[in-house]
Simulated assay, not measured.
Amino acid sequence: MNLQSPHLSIEMTQEIFYCKEALHLESGEILPEFQLSFTTQGQLNDKKDNVVWVLHALTGDANPQEWWAGLIGEDKFYDPSRHFIICANFLGSCYGSTQPLSVNPGTGKPYYYDFPNLTTRDIAASMDKLRLHLGLDQIDTVIGGSLGGQVALEWAYTLKERLNNAIIIASNAKASPWIIGFNETQRMAIESDQTWGSMDAKAGKKGLETARAIGMLSYRHPQTFIQHQSETEEKRDNFKISSYLRYQGMKLANRFNALSYWTLSKAMDSHDLGRARGGTAAALAKIQCKVLSIGIDTDLLFTFVESRFISLHVPKGTYREISSLYGHDAFLIEYEQLQYILQSFYLENNHSIRT
C-alpha cells in the first residue's frame, strides 16, 4: 500500500509484517504469531548505512512525518532523499499491529482482556523480528522519545555492534515511581468506567477520556497552562483549562482504544534496562553504540536528571538539553533546538548522516 504524505513529495510505503514465529515474552507468556504495521520512506543506499529507525510515543503511529513533521520529511533533518526511514507501530498499539482487539488465533475471538502483558523489552524484540525480515544487518540511528526512547534504549542494548547511534529523548533507563503513579491513576480512571470489562471495542472509552486529561497534566509544564489557558475575565466556573482537558480526552478516545492504552502504559511502567542484567548502571555500561540522551529542563514526567543519568553511564554518551516552557511535550514541538542538537552530535562524532 502506497501513501502520499501531504508534507512530502517522496512516496511513503505502508506495509504489514506478519510474523508466524512465536514471540516469547518476559512474562513467560507467548504470542503464537503477531503483525506489525510499518512504513518506509526513501531508499537503502549501496552501503546500507543510511537506516534511520523512528520509534513513536505512547499513542503514536507509524507515520512520523505527521507527528514529527518538523524533523522528518523532505528538506528536514532526516530527509528521505538521503535516508531510509522506518517506523513501525508498536505491538499492543491499535494502528495496525497486534493488540487486545486483534483475534487470538487460539480462540478465534478477540483477545480483549486476555492480551498478554508486554514490556519495553518485548516491544524491542518484536522490532528486531522486523529488522531481520527486512534483511538489515546494520542500523545507523534508532531515535525515539518518551516510551519510544525506552524501547530504543532496550533495543540498543540487544543490537550491540549492529547499531551506530541511539538517540534517546525525554526518556529514562528505568520507569520511576512518579511515572508509574501517573499511569496507575489513568488506569484507575479507565477501570471506573462502567463499560470496562465488557467484550466491546469501545469498552472504557469514557474512562480513557479522563485518563488522557490526567496525562495531559504531566505532559506539559504548569507555566504552559498559565500562558495558554489563563482567563482574561473574572470567573467562578467554565474555565478554559477545563474545556481544554475535556477536549483532549475526547480527541484521544475517538482515535485510540482503552485496551491498547492500558497495555502500553503497563509496558512503560515495566521499563527497567537493568532487570536481570545486574542493575541499571551495569546494563547501560554494556551498550556499544554512541548514545545521545536529550533532556528537557521543564519535563515533569521524564526528568532531565534521568536523561543525564543515561549519558553518564553508557561508554559513549553525550547529554544535551532542550530549554522550553512546554514540558515533556517539547520533544514534539521544539524542532529548531532538536535539529541543532542532532547536527552537533553527528558532527562531533565525525558522522555526516545528512550528506
Rank of each mutant, 00 (worst) to 15 (best):
F34D: 02
T303M: 01
I30H: 05
V151L: 08
S307E: 01
F239Y: 15
S102W: 05
Y247T: 07
E26P: 00
L91N: 08
N164G: 04
T263N: 08
L153D: 02
Q337I: 00
M250Q: 13
F225R: 09
Y261I: 12
Q229R: 10
R82Y: 14
K76G: 01
V291Y: 01
E33L: 13
L3G: 07
D75Y: 10
A189Y: 01
T13D: 09
N117V: 09
R187I: 06
S323T: 12
A211W: 04
P116D: 15
A124M: 09
T224K: 03
N350D: 11
Y346F: 15
H313I: 05
I30N: 05
L245F: 13
F90M: 13
S230A: 14
I167S: 03
P315Y: 00
Y18H: 13
S5N: 05
E306P: 03
L332V: 04
V51K: 03
S260T: 14
Q229P: 06
E154P: 06
L58R: 00
I143D: 10
Q339L: 09
M1P: 09
V103N: 12
D329E: 08
K251D: 14
L31M: 10
Q248I: 08
G197L: 03
S93C: 11
M199D: 13
D122I: 05
E348N: 12
L252F: 08
Y112H: 11
S171Y: 00
G215P: 02
L163A: 06
T263M: 02
K202Y: 15
L338S: 05
A170L: 01
I85Y: 05
S323Q: 14
S324W: 05
W155M: 13
S198K: 14
H271E: 04
Y95G: 04
F115Y: 11
L136Q: 10
T40M: 03
R246M: 11
A125F: 04
K206D: 13
G70E: 04
A281P: 08
P110C: 06
S198Y: 12
A175F: 01
Y326G: 09
P80Y: 02
K109T: 12
S307L: 00
I353H: 04
L136P: 06
C87A: 05
R320T: 00
G327M: 10
G279A: 08
G278R: 10
V52A: 12
E334L: 04
S270V: 01
D49S: 13
A156E: 03
N238H: 11
S9D: 13
V54I: 15
L25N: 07
T210A: 14
L58P: 01
I10H: 07
I85L: 09
I226R: 12
Y157C: 02
T141S: 09
N350R: 08
Q43P: 05
I86K: 03
N50R: 01
C87P: 00
S81G: 08
A57V: 13
Q223F: 11
T280E: 04
H56A: 05
Y111S: 02
N45Q: 03
S323D: 11
F309I: 03
M250V: 10
Q337D: 06
H328S: 02
K202P: 01
G92M: 02
D299K: 07
W262I: 07
L147I: 07
E233P: 05
G106E: 15
K205A: 14
L342P: 06
R255C: 08
Q194Y: 10
I167P: 08
F90R: 01
E336Q: 12
I143C: 09
V52C: 10
D329Q: 08
R121Y: 14
G42R: 00
V52I: 15
Q43T: 15
L58Q: 00
Y261P: 12
